[in-house]
Amino acid sequence: MTGDASSEIIDRAPWARVDDVPWQRIVSPLAMILRGGVRHLQIWKCTASSERSCPETGSHCDKFHSGWFLPALCVPQERATALDELVVTSADGEHVAVRVRDTQDPRRASYLWALAEDVQRWRDLTDDGEGEPEDLPADDEPVTYTEEELDSSCRYGNQDRQYFSDPRPRRDMMSATGLHTFDTAPDHPYRAPRRPVQMRRLSTRERAVIADELGCPVWEIGPCALCAEPIHRYGRSSGLACVSCRATTLSR
């Protein structure tokens, strides 16, 4: 687990990224939502009316594509996974770790956590196994050392120009991973989201009643990140998950 999008552990092993928060937030009962490392399989037909542009042409190709997407980028949107939830579901086999090759660059591979049924379906579609770590070369060049005599002279202020070290690049990328294209439709290409995040539609009166019960303005009502029930989601002293989901998470 890391809070740094440029951390070297990303795509070197199964990983998860959370927000970089102080220790008070970590020990609080609020759920820590995973921002990266967990993805969902998406399969769609690439047409002019598709909500996604073609990953190959930028327009549409009338073929089928599949890929791994973050929950917020799924169509329809999937709900996010909490860190405590991943600990349990990875232990009982609901989430499994998988390594996906980049079809554009075979030297690159991404690690991700995904639902076991999505992983099995992806393997059936692509006929692609994870392979052994030796199958892929390392992302970085090997470190070599050439013995040279130590130069102890100070050159500070004598350089012709200043040199600055570049920041580490972001390793947690938001783009789709493991894209594949099919000429014909796979069996059962579509499925309803297993864990939808959309909050049920509320009338003006229902929203006002809920806001009165929670003691917050109506515009601060939003969905629980785990069960999509309406809660005090936005504004000061708000949380990402409802009391029931927090209690369930803590009981685990």
Rank of each mutant, 00 (worst) to 15 (best):
A5T: 06
S6H: 09
R17H: 08
R17Q: 13
D19P: 00
D19M: 07
D20Y: 02
R25L: 00
I26W: 15
V27Q: 13
L30H: 15
R35I: 00
R35D: 04
G36L: 01
R39P: 06
I43V: 15
C46R: 00
T47M: 05
S49I: 08
E51P: 09
C54M: 13
S59N: 04
C61M: 03
C61T: 10
F64K: 01
S66T: 07
S66Y: 00
W68D: 05
F69V: 10
F69P: 01
L70H: 11
C74Y: 06
V75E: 10
P76W: 07
A80W: 01
D84T: 08
L86D: 11
A91H: 04
D92K: 10
G93W: 02
V100S: 02
D102Y: 12
D102C: 15
T103N: 10
D105F: 04
P106E: 07
P106W: 06
W113I: 06
L115V: 09
L115N: 13
D118V: 02
D124L: 12
L125E: 04
L125M: 15
T126V: 11
T126Y: 00
D128G: 04
E130G: 00
E134K: 13
D135K: 09
L136V: 14
L136R: 15
A138T: 13
V143L: 15
T144M: 13
E148S: 11
L150A: 09
S153T: 14
Y156D: 11
D160C: 05
D166L: 15
D166Q: 12
P167F: 03
P169S: 06
R171S: 11
R171E: 11
S175P: 00
A176R: 14
T177V: 14
T177A: 06
G178L: 07
T181W: 00
D183M: 12
T184W: 03
P186S: 04
P186R: 06
P186Q: 09
R191D: 09
R195P: 02
Q198V: 06
L202Y: 07
T204S: 07
R205L: 13
R205Q: 14
V209S: 14
E213D: 13
E213A: 10
L214V: 02
C216M: 10
G222K: 05
C224N: 05
C224V: 03
C224P: 01
A225W: 03
A225T: 08
L226S: 14
C227F: 02
I231N: 04
R233Y: 14
G239W: 05
C242F: 03
C242M: 05
C242H: 02
C245Y: 02
C245T: 03
R246L: 04
L250C: 04
S251L: 13
S251F: 03
R252P: 00
R252G: 08
